[in-house]
């Protein structure tokens, strides 16, 4: 994966266009509840935080899936809805909370980067969400906090 969603929370105005775009791309409806990206509103701090899967290397969701329904497509972890049985074990194994069960379909959903053209980034009017080269510093920062979760087996070598 050479490109990733890089989120600059300082630029987010909380317009939630990303949620609508994501929902429309994946379900054909404008329903933020079915979006794979969620905007958190920390209004006391005047801050909005768009939040979604970082396609982490640990791939907790993929590792734990009992039926091989989550595949790694060039770094992007993609749920095959036809194979998913809806057991939800990935939703508790992902320590970031970015795989969710969707009662409407009986399957789990997560960000799949829209096959390489993320609708959220395209819809963001302020470039708070950009789909860009992973070498951009912001992405490393996002990954760094992900590492804070010391659930990861630590390789010493």
């Amino acid at each position: 994966m050479d490109k990733a969603l890089v989120i600059d929370v300082g630029k987010c105005t909380g317009c939630r266009q990303c949620e609508l775009a994501c929902s429309y791309e994946h379900t054909g409806t404008f329903n933020p509840a079915r979006s794979r990206i969620a905007v958190f509103d920390f209004h006391e701090k005047g801050r909005f935080v768009p939040y979604t899967c970082t396609q982490c290397d640990q791939a907790w969701c993929q590792q734990v899936c009992p039926v091989g329904a989550i595949t790694n497509e060039d770094g992007v972890k993609v749920v095959d809805a036809a194979t998913c049985v809806g057991c939800k074990v990935c939703t508790i194994a992902c320590p970031f909370g970015t795989v969710n069960y969707e009662p409407a379909t009986g399957k789990v959903i997560k960000c799949d980067l829209c096959g390489g053209e993320p609708a959220c980034a395209a819809a963001c009017p302020t470039e708070a969400i950009v789909f860009t080269d992973v070498s951009v510093q912001g992405f490393e920062k996002m990954r760094a906090w992900a590492e804070k979760t010391d659930t990861a087996p630590q390789a010493n070598a």
């Binding site: 939703t91 970031f96 979760t149």
Partner: peptide, 16 residues
């Protein structure tokens, strides 16, 4: 509760 339930693992195991 189903939404972002995995965060509970992150908070607990990350000892945040």
């Amino acid at each position: 509760h189903v939404n972002m339930i995995g965060c509970l693992r992150g908070l607990i195991q990350g000892r945040m």
